[in-house]
Amino acid sequence: MIELDHVSRRFGEQLAVDDVSFAVERGTITVIVGTSGSGKSTTLRMINRLIEPTSGTITIDGKDTTAVSGEELRRGIGYVIQGNGLFPHWTVARNIATVPTLLGWDSAKIARRVDELLALFSMKPEDFREKFPHQLSGGEQQRVGVARALAAEPGLLLMDEPFGALDPIIRAKAQEDLLAVQRRLGITVVLVTHDMEEAIHLGDRIAVMDGGKLLQYAPPAEILAKPAPGFVAKLVDGADRPFRLLSLAPVSSIVEPGTAEGPPILETATLRDALSELLWHRRDALPVTAADGSTRGKISLSNLVAHAGGAA
């Protein structure tokens, strides 16, 4: 668990981060979202002390981050930035091995770890180990960047606009990869983005920042349904708000008993996908199935619509 307690940061005259407090649960993804200059990156960088807070304390699992040196702290925390920051003069393997090497792991263990991580990100170790970053595609570079950050098995991963430089298709894939890896390893992730869509998609909780202040810290559904008045409301306001809300819950959450005609929908699909299918096939209800093909019930348009509205 990470706790920020009344943390502020001043750059000269300017208060970049203004008295921010929040806590991040172990094993969850927290997304800090805001426009540029909102203080979101500064907040993230104070967690691994790339920037020192002017006042306030930050603890990780109850330990004050200032208890150890900045370098030692950072070696225990994964860090991914926009444009990946891979070292162009090192091979993929050596890039991934950066922190384990700094920590003094023996070479056999490092080699094993490199292969393990490459496999985790579906890159064949024997094909990719000896490649240089410029020989990789944008998506591969991004994956190596995340693999590098995870190399020393950190419990916490900090990501600063990690998908900012990717084109939309690769970006969607990278987001799915991140979700899968996070679930599998159970790590804690704090991610910064300016993209509300991305925040809603990835975050277990979202922290909205503006002008250095934390405006709202809540699960995505709550941000959408009950946004704090002012900036947050304006941010989530828009024609597609109902669809965003629907995209947060799986079909299984509102499945009803009974049967219906038409092409079946997987229970793990989002409500947004279900709505799309219902509209497209001009039906009031469609059958719901599990991954193994067994029928679970049906989903109806009326029930779905009831879940798509904000606070009444």
């Binding site: 691994n48 790339l50 900045g70 370098e71 030692e72 702290l73 950072r74 070696r75 225990g76 860090y79 930035i81 926009q82 444009g83 990946n84 920051g85 891979l86 070292f87 162009p88 950066t98 922190v99 700094l102 960047g145 590098r148 950050a149 900090l158």
Partner: peptide, 13 residues
Amino acid sequence: RRSVVEAAEGMGM
């Protein structure tokens, strides 16, 4: 590149 230096710093070099 800035990002490369920052990555090095972020990893605790």
